Amino acid sequence: MKPQDYITLDETYAAHTYHPIEVVIERGEGVWVYDVEGKKYLDCLSAYSAVNQGHCHPRILEAATAQMHRVTLTSRAFFNDQMGPFMKELCELTGYEMALPMNTGAEAVETAIKAARKWGYQMKGVPDNQAEIIVCEGNFAGRTTTLISFSSEPQYREDFGPLTPGFKTVPYGDADELEEAITPNTVAFLVEPIQGEGGVNVPPPGYLKRVSEICAAHNVLFIADEIQTGLGRTGAILCCDHEGVRPDVVTLGKALSGGFYPVSAVLADRKVLGLFRPGDHGSTFGGNPLGSAIARAALDVLVDEGLIDHSREMGAYFKGRLERLEGDHIKEVRGKGLLIGVELDRRARPYCDALQERGILCKDTHGTVVRFAPPLIITKDEIDWAMERIGPVLMNGHS
C-alpha cells in the first residue's frame, strides 16, 4: 500500500485524538526510522523520549525475545523471577528504598497522587477527603480524568467533567507562589523539572532546590514527574540531579522500557510507599515478567553505554548549534541535555512539516515551539547532518 492508504485507514477507523506528521513509519534502527517507501528520517522526537536508547536496541530486543520464550505475564497474584531484581536495580540506581511498578506514565502519576493522599491522611493527619495537591500552570501529566482535572489547557478539560477536586495551581518557576499556596491540608507539590509538553519550559536556576526546601519546611511531599525528563534525557539520571535535589517521590516511564513495552514506576522511601496494603492499589500487567526483563535491559544500556554523559555532551553541542541560528522569528532556544525547544513567534507546525520533507522528524508543542529530542545515542556527525537541514528551515521563516 502507498503511504496515503495507511493514513486513510487510520483516519477512517481510529478516533481522531492526534494530528500526526504525515509520514508512515515501517521500521527503526538507532536514531533512524524508515517509511513504507524506504525513505530514511532522523528521529528527533524519540517517541516523546520513550526511545532514549535508540530504536530496537539489540540488547533490549534480546532480553525481550528471551523473556517472551519463557513467560510474559503472571499477574501480581504470584511472584515472578524478574520483578524483584528489576525493583532492586531501579532503587539502587536512583537511591530510593521502594518502587511500585505500573505500565504507563499516566498510571504512575495517578499512583503518586494516591500515595501522597494516603500519606497525608495517615502521617500528616489531614482530615478525611481534604487533601490538597499543588501543581503548576502548563503542566502535563496524562489524559486520565483526574490528571486533566489539574491541567491549565482548556481543551484537555472541555466536555470531560465533572472533574476531580483537590488540586491548586501556581505559576511554574515561582517558588514564592508555591509557599504562599501551602495550607495545613497540602500533602504534595507535583512538578515537572522541565515542562516538556508545556513548551520545553526550564525553571530558573535554583528553583527545584528552593521548592524542595519549602516542601520539607512545611511537611509537604515533593513529587517530581520525571517521566519525560528522567533516565538520561537531560544529561543526568534524573533531571533533579542537576540541582542536587532528592524529591520525596519520583515518577518514571517512557524510556524505562526503551520503547519496547509500557513500563512505569513510582519511586519513594518506605515512609510513603510502605503505607500501601494489599488491595489498596494494583495492576494486572504492572511488574509483569516481560516488562520487568525489558526494563532491566533498558537501564543496563543507559549505564553501560554511558548514555547519560553522552546526552549531556551532545545536548550542549546541539543546543549551541541551534542558538547560533539567526532569524527575527526565533525567540528563544532552551532546554537541558537532549531535550531542546526552539520557540518561534509563529506557529511551529509548518516548520515541522518542512523538516519532515527534508528527512528530520520532530513535533511542535504548545503551538509555537519546535522540540528536538533525538535518541541519546546520537553522534556529533548526525547532529551536523541534521543542522544542515534544520538551519535553512528555521532561518528561512517558513510559515
Rank of each mutant, 00 (worst) to 15 (best):
M1A: 15
K2C: 09
P3C: 13
D5R: 11
I7S: 06
H16K: 15
T17S: 06
E29V: 00
V33Q: 05
L42H: 05
L42E: 01
D43H: 11
D43Y: 03
D43W: 03
Y48F: 13
S49W: 00
G54D: 01
I60G: 08
R70L: 13
R70C: 08
F79E: 12
M83D: 08
F86I: 05
F86G: 06
C91R: 04
E92L: 11
E92R: 14
L93H: 01
Y96E: 02
N103Y: 01
G105I: 13
E110W: 03
T111W: 03
A112N: 01
A112I: 02
A116L: 07
K118V: 03
Y121T: 00
A131E: 13
G138S: 00
G142W: 14
T144A: 13
S149R: 10
S152N: 02
P154I: 05
Q155E: 12
E158A: 14
D159Q: 10
G161F: 10
F167H: 10
F167A: 11
V170C: 06
G173W: 10
P184G: 03
L190K: 01
V191T: 13
E192N: 13
I194S: 12
I194G: 03
N201C: 12
N201F: 11
V202K: 07
P203I: 14
P205M: 08
V211K: 03
S212T: 13
E213R: 07
I227K: 04
Q228L: 14
I237N: 05
I237C: 06
L238F: 04
C239D: 14
C239L: 11
D241W: 02
G253K: 03
P262H: 02
V263Q: 11
V263W: 00
S264Q: 09
D269I: 08
L275P: 04
F276M: 09
D280T: 05
H281Y: 10
H281R: 10
T284G: 11
T284W: 05
F285C: 03
V301N: 04
G306D: 05
I308L: 08
M314N: 06
M314C: 08
G320C: 12
G320K: 13
G320S: 11
E323W: 12
E326D: 12
E332D: 12
V333M: 10
V342T: 13
D345E: 14
R358D: 05
G359L: 00
I360M: 05
H366E: 11
T368V: 12
V369K: 03
T379P: 01
T379I: 02
K380M: 01
I383W: 07
D384L: 12
W385R: 14
P392K: 12
L394Y: 08
G397F: 02
S399L: 15
